[in-house]
Design a protein around this nucleic acid. Structure first.
Lengths: 123, 123
DNA sequence: AATAGTTACTTGCACTTTGCAAGTTAGTGG
DNA sequence: CCACTAACTTGCAAAGTGCAAGTAACTATT
């Protein structure tokens, strides 16, 4: 990973500051775990972009691939602590939008009031 | 402005979710007001991108152009309430980076503890 | 009056990233 | 052997970005 500067804000954006990465994370917070579930999100992410971003997030340690079945072997993507810790960023983005952009969906209470730890439980 | 969906998170990112817009806002929070001051930021933004983003932020009402002198007429860019309200987003991005990215600059106490209102004072 | 300096952009072009459609791979089930 | 499903990969056009050079509107200097 290459950073434009040592500014902490710029460095975070170097990682997740593009058109899709934070939305992929949002999907996971909202329950998407499998590749196909991500494709159902309302914004309509392209398959190549999704594959690229999942690989990036895994390489950077924000999500991890966990097998959910063998025969055929299939994986799902889960948040690591590093990824889950971006929850406050998504919450503040949502809060801003609710105040300044008219006619948006209301985020769930559960989403707005949860903490990163809440998304780390195993099952 | 076109939105990919009515998701509040996606909608905020439609506005500021590219490689530079949030860094231009960070500059303003850190005191850059004039075009030339923005060009001094450590990431080295290109002049065309900067002009484009300042125009976008003004068009969307996050910043406004205020004359700081006549003869020759010159303007500076200041945060509106809408723009200043993105401060918590920048603060959470910085907080995440300090926890998860090694060897970053420490943001100033002033920046991390300020509130949007603090950047709206006239002078 | 002509020249140089300052500030704030604009333009042109190469390069990179994104978006869309179609194709591929690895497996199961019939 | 064939259809089916999930998870990608590939090709290519379009949009966005990065770099260098150029322009515009003044002011200050000689």
């Amino acid at each position: 990973m290459e950073h434009r500067s040592k500014c902490p804000i710029a460095s975070t954006l170097d990682l997740v500051g593009d058109r899709w990465t934070l939305l992929v994370l949002r999907n996971i917070f909202r329950g998407s775990r499998r590749y196909g579930e991500h494709l159902e999100s309302p914004e309509g992410i392209a398959t190549n972009i999704l594959a690229d971003r999942l690989a990036l997030l895994e390489r950077e340690g924000l999500i991890e691939k966990v097998a959910y079945q063998t025969r055929p072997l299939r994986h799902e993507y889960r948040l690591t602590r590093k990824g889950a810790d971006l929850l406050p960023v998504l919450q503040t983005l949502a809060t801003w939008s609710m105040k300044h952009v008219p006619d948006r969906w209301a985020p769930s209470e559960r989403f707005m009031h949860s903490r990163p730890e809440d998304f780390l439980a195993q099952d």
